[in-house]
C-alpha cells in the first residue's frame, strides 16, 4: 500500500519509516521548483493557510511562508504579540475562530509541548507542528535527514552525533526519532546537566567529550545553546561551555575523516560552534536552509486534503518498527 501522511504532522515519533521516506522522496522534485524562473506551482491554489506563531521564529516561519507561496496557497501570519492571544484567548478559541473563516491548514509554533497535537485533535484543518515546547520540531528533523541523504546518499548506517543542549531541544528529539527509524546510529554529546536522563533507553549512545564525538561520528548536528540556560544554572558560563564543548577547527582537525557539520540555527558563533567551522568546507548549514523549503512544500502537498482515516489506514498497514 502506498504510504500517506494523514491529516496532521505532529512529530516523527508517530511516523513510520515509510512515511518519513515518502516525505524525503516527495521533497526531491520540490527542490527544482525553487530553481524555476517562476518559482510557483498551482498545487495548493485556493487553500488558505494560517501560520500561528506563539514563539519568535525567523527561519522556520519564513521557510514555511515561502513553501506555502510557492505552492500558490494564500497565507496569513498570526503572532502571539499583537493578537487576541495577549487578551487571554485560549489556543482552541483562536483556532476555532480562524476555522470559522474557512481556513484549510494551520502551521503552529507554541511554547508548550503537545500544543500541536492538542490543536490537531480539535479542529478539522490540517495541523503542522513547527515546534512545540521541548517536544518535537518535525520539519527541522526532516530537512536534516534530507541534507544527510543528499550528502551521504543514504541514512542507514550513518553515525550522527547531536552536540549540546539535548535536554531542551525539540530538534534533537525529532532528529533522534527520524535517524533511528531510518537505521542511523545516534549519539548525543553535552554536559550531563543538558542531557535527558535515561536517553540511552532510546538506543542512543552518550558521549561525554566532544573529542569522542569527533572520533566516532560521520556528521555532527550542533545544537543551539540557548543563552538563558546559563541563568538556569545548567552551565557555569558560555566561555566555559565553548572551552569544553565548542566545535572548533582545532578539534575537528583530529577527526579520522572529514566531518559533516550541521546546525539548525540560529547559531551562537563562538559558543557552540567556531565561525571557521560554521563557514568551512564541510558545513552544510545553508544546504539545510535550502532543503527546508523543499521539505515544507512536500509536507504541505502531502497533507493537503488529508483525512484522519487515511493516516490510520497507513499505520494499520505499516510494519511496526
Amino acid at each position: 500500500m502506498t504510504a500517506v501522511l494523514g491529516k496532521d504532522l505532529i512529530g516523527l515519533a508517530s511516523l513510520t519509516p515509510e512515511q518519513i521516506r515518502l516525505v524525503l522522496d516527495t521533497a526531491e522534485p520540490f527542490k527544482e521548483v525553487s530553481e524555476r524562473p517562476i518559482k510557483k506551482v498551482p498545487a495548493l491554489r485556493g487553500k488558505t493557510i494560517v501560520n500561528l506563531f506563539f514563539e519568535a521564529s525567523t527561519r522556520t516561519r519564513i521557510s514555511f511562508e515561502f513553501a506555502e507561496k510557492r505552492l500558490s496557497a494564500d497565507t496569513v501570519n498570526v503572532s502571539a504579540s499583537g493578537s487576541s492571544v495577549q487578551k487571554g484567548e485560549t489556543l482552541v478559541d483562536t483556532a476555532r475562530n480562524l476555522e470559522a473563516m474557512r481556513i484549510d491548514m494551520v502551521v503552529i509554533r507554541h511554547q508548550s509541548s503537545g500544543a500541536a497535537e492538542f490543536l490537531g485533535n480539535r479542529i478539522r484543518s490540517n495541523v503542522i507542528n513547527a515546534g512545540d515546547g521541548k517536544h518535537e520540531h518535525p520539519t527541522q528533523a526532516l530537512l536534516d535527514l534530507l541534507t544527510l541523504r543528499d550528502k551521504f546518499g543514504k541514512i542507514a548506517g550513518l553515525k550522527v552525533c547531536l552536540v549540546g543542549d539535548v535536554l531542551h531541544s525539540r530538534v534533537a528529539r525529532s532528529n533522534i526519532w527520524g535517524l533511528l527509524k531510518l537505521g542511523a546510529e545516534v549519539a548525543v554529546c553535552g554536559p550531563r546537566t543538558l542531557l535527558p536522563r535515561g536517553i540511552e533507553q532510546l538506543g542512543v549512545r552518550v558521549l561525554d567529550h566532544v573529542e569522542e564525538a569527533i572520533q566516532w561520528a560521520d556528521a555532527l548536528n550542533v545544537l543551539r545553546l540557548q543563552l538563558e540556560r546559563m541563568e538556569g544554572g545548567f552551565i557555569p558560563s558560555l566561555r566555559e561551555y565553548y572551552r569544553v564543548f565548542g566545535v572548533t577547527e582545532e578539534r575537528l582537525a583530529k577527526a579520522p575523516r572529514p566531518l559533516t557539520i550541521m546546525h539548525p540555527g540560529p547559531m551562537n558563533r563562538g559558543v557552540e560552534i567556531d565561525s571557521r567551522v560554521a563557514d568551512g568546507p564541510h558545513s552544510v548549514i545553508l544546504d539545510q536552509v535550502t532543503n527546508g523549503v523543499a521539505i515544507r512544500m512536500a509536507v504541505l502537498y502531502l497533507l493537503a486534503g488529508g483525512k484522519p482515516e487515511l493516516a490510520d489506514a497507513a499505520k494499520g498497514a505499516a510494519v511496526p518498527d
Partner: peptide, 15 residues
Amino acid sequence: LYRDDLETVGPKPVI
C-alpha cells in the same frame, strides 16, 4: 502539481 484533480485523488501522486 498542475493537475486539476489533485484535490480528489486518493494518496498524493508521486512526482
